[in-house]
C-alpha cells in the first residue's frame, strides 16, 4: 500500500484526507486517490493531467521528476506527499 497525504492548505478548499491506495507509479497512485475524491483532482492536476505549475509531489521525501506523465515509480510501502510549491512571500 502507498500512504498518501496532502498539505493542510488544500483542505480549506477541498477535503483531502490521508489515505492508503495501491499503485506503482505516481499516475497510478493519484488516479487511485482521485477515483474516490474527484473534486480534488482539479486542485492538484491541470486539464491535461499534469501537476499544476505551483503544486508538487514528493515520494519518500524526494520531489518527482516527471510532472507531465507522472511516470516516477512508487515502491510499495512508500509515502506520497502532495503540497503547494512555495512561491511568493
Amino acid at each position: 500500500m502507498i500512504n498518501v497525504a496532502f498539505t493542510d492548505n488544500i483542505q480549506r478548499h477541498v477535503e483531502c484526507p490521508a489515505c492508503a491506495v495501491i499503485g506503482s507509479s505516481v499516475r497510478e497512485v493519484l488516479d487511485a486517490v482521485f477515483e474516490s475524491n474527484q473534486k480534488a483532482r482539479g486542485y492538484v492536476l491541470d486539464d491535461t493531467g499534469a501537476v499544476r505549475k505551483h503544486m508538487t509531489v514528493f515520494v519518500n521525501g524526494a520531489q518527482i521528476k516527471d510532472r507531465t506523465k507522472l511516470s516516477d515509480p512508487v515502491p510499495d510501502g512508500a509515502s506520497v506527499y502532495i503540497m503547494q510549491a512555495l512561491s511568493g512571500g
Binding site: I10, V44, M55, S87, G88
Partner: peptide, 8 residues
Amino acid sequence: GHGHFGAK
C-alpha cells in the same frame, strides 16, 4: 482563481 490550485 487560486494561485496554486487553479481556477474554480
